[in-house]
Each structure stands twice: as structure tokens, then as C-alpha cells.
């Protein structure tokens, strides 16, 4: 099962990189979104993608003795998903604004301009 996930993660990274290398800004956005998901899935797989009980200490005991799901990896992914969502939302608005103000859709068309105040 892990091998399958590894292939999926690699495939997602490949798709993300391919999309980022495309000219339109929208594909760039999609590429970044896919890359973020690939990284998240990788963390998930790396903690062992198996069906295990939640990490709760049974009544009357001090430590868990049975195998449990790793809570840290899940906490990492949750945090990363929330952050990724927020940042991606910002990027979407930014691309929209760039398109609105300068009517361009390609990364190379962005000006090398220097701002004035």
C-alpha cells in the first residue's frame, strides 16, 4: 500500500511541477495547489497509512501499550492544509488583480518595473 501511495505522491509532484512550468498564471496557481496537496499526502503516508485506533490512553492506565495512529503527522497535515488554503486564497485574488489591472495571463509578461511612491 505504501508503494502505491509513494507513486501517487510522485505523480502529484510531477503534475504540480508541470503545471507551474506552463505559461498561464491560472495553471501556475493550480500547480501550486497540487504541489501543496502532494506534500500533505507525503506527510500522511510517511506516518504510515494504516488503519489504527486513535491515540487515546485507556482508562486506568498511564501510557498506551497497543499500537496507535501517529497524532503528530495528522496535526502537521491539518496545520499545513489550513495554511495552504489561506495562502492559496490570497494567490487566487492576486492573480485576479494582476489580470484585471494589466490584462495579462503569462508569467513572462509581468513587467520588470520599479515602483514609485
Amino acid at each position: 500500500m505504501d508503494a502505491l501511495y509513494a507513486v501517487v505522491v510522485g505523480f502529484l509532484f510531477a503534475i504540480g511541477v508541470y503545471l507551474i512550468l506552463q505559461r498561464p498564471l491560472v495553471k501556475l496557481l493550480l500547480g501550486i495547489a497540487v504541489l501543496g496537496n502532494a506534500a500533505n499526502l507525503m506527510i500522511f503516508v510517511s506516518s504510515g497509512a494504516r488503519r489504527l485506533p486513535p491515540p487515546l490512553i485507556p482508562d486506568g492506565e498511564k501510557v498506551v501499550t497497543t499500537p496507535i495512529a501517529d497524532p503528530i503527522a495528522q496535526a502537521l497535515i491539518l496545520t499545513a492544509i489550513v495554511i495552504g488554503f489561506g495562502v492559496l486564497a490570497f494567490a487566487v485574488v492576486l492573480v485576479h488583480r494582476v489580470h484585471q489591472t494589466s490584462q495579462i495571463d503569462g508569467f513572462d509578461e509581468l513587467t520588470e518595473g520599479v515602483g514609485t511612491e
Binding site: I20, L28, A91, V98, T101, L110, T111, V114
Partner: peptide
Amino acid sequence: GSDQQLAGGMKYVTLNLI
């Protein structure tokens, strides 16, 4: 939100997201 800032910001955001 000037044009230059949006263009510069686009590069900055993309590279930092990657």
C-alpha cells in the same frame, strides 16, 4: 496595488510558495 507592485508581488508570492 500599482501595476509594478502586482507584477513584483506575483513573482515574490510564487517563489515563496514553491
